[in-house]
């Protein structure tokens, strides 16, 4: 019998959503054009070439190396792209993703990524075109709600702040706004104004966000109600503790 990946314990919708994020089998909800993505990331002008830090690998005359032969370079590495970042901030008010599960999703489903996980933000650094691939994947799928998640290179504390009345996560730098029934972004990740308003799509309704979220909250799916997850955390705790306690050594 083939082994089936388990990913994560738990019997609740939050646990199920976490499994989805980790597996990469998430629903696509919207389209972001390549040029719009480039604009909001703010690393280069739309349509411009990828700046490179070295010639394409094929022109480099790489040394003989079994590891290099075994591991296929990512497209960005092949082309010699520089390393750039995408950073997401997720509201704790039922934002669809959370920092750890963005990192797990990146590590499991994408190659050549360097995820960093903090409380308010989650960053992935990668060769530029590889980074754009994972950025686009997250922005277009149920991993992101344009009102409750946002690209932010700096000032990320909106994640824990009360929601403004329009339901768009607080942003000190006012990068995103609700216009009509969609969310637009008029500044790039680090808050520099951009030439056009980028349509990020419709925000999730409160009900949809509650259904798709990966955060436990007492007013939605309470952590204390997911007994299997707590039991699993206890098991990890037991094992780490007793592993270190080895008086016979």
């Amino acid at each position: 019998m083939a082994y089936e990946l388990q990913y994560y314990p738990g019997a609740t919708s939050v646990a199920e959503n976490r499994r989805k994020h980790m597996s990469g089998k998430v629903e696509k909800l919207r389209e972001i054009s390549d040029d719009d993505l480039t604009l909001v990331l703010g690393h280069r002008a739309p349509g411009s070439d990828y700046p490179s830090t070295h010639p394409p690998l094929a022109e480099m005359g790489e040394p003989e190396c079994s590891v290099r032969e075994m591991v296929e370079p990512t497209p960005g590495a092949k082309a010699g792209d520089r390393v750039r970042y995408v950073q997401f901030v997720d509201s704790m008010y039922n934002g669809p993703s959370v920092p750890y599960f963005r990192s797990y999703a990146a590590s499991i489903n994408f190659r050549g990524v360097d995820p960093g996980t903090l409380s308010g933000r989650q960053v992935v650094e990668a060769r530029e075109r590889d980074m754009e691939e994972i950025a686009k994947f997250q922005m277009e799928t149920e991993m992101t709600c344009p009102a409750l998640a946002s690209l932010r290179g700096a000032t990320v504390h909106g994640h824990s702040l009360r929601l403004p009345e329009d339901g768009v996560m607080f942003d000190m730098l006012d990068r995103c706004r609700r216009e009509g029934d969609v969310i637009i972004m008029h500044k790039d990740q680090v808050g520099r104004p951009i030439d056009k308003k980028v349509n990020l799509g419709k925000p999730m309704s409160a009900e949809e966000a509650a259904k798709r979220t990966t955060i436990y909250r007492v007013d939605n799916v309470a952590f204390r109600d997911d007994a299997e997850v707590i039991e699993w955390v206890h098991r990890v705790f037991d094992q780490r503790t007793t592993y270190g306690f080895k008086p016979e050594n």
């Binding site: 704790m92 959370v98 903090l118 409380s119 707590i230 206890h234 503790t241």
Partner: peptide, 18 residues
């Protein structure tokens, strides 16, 4: 203390800085 850190991380999907 450490168990609390594990539970917190799992409940909110985030903990502190690196």
């Amino acid at each position: 203390w450490y168990l609390c850190m594990y539970l917190h991380k799992e409940a909110h999907g985030r903990l502190g800085f690196f």
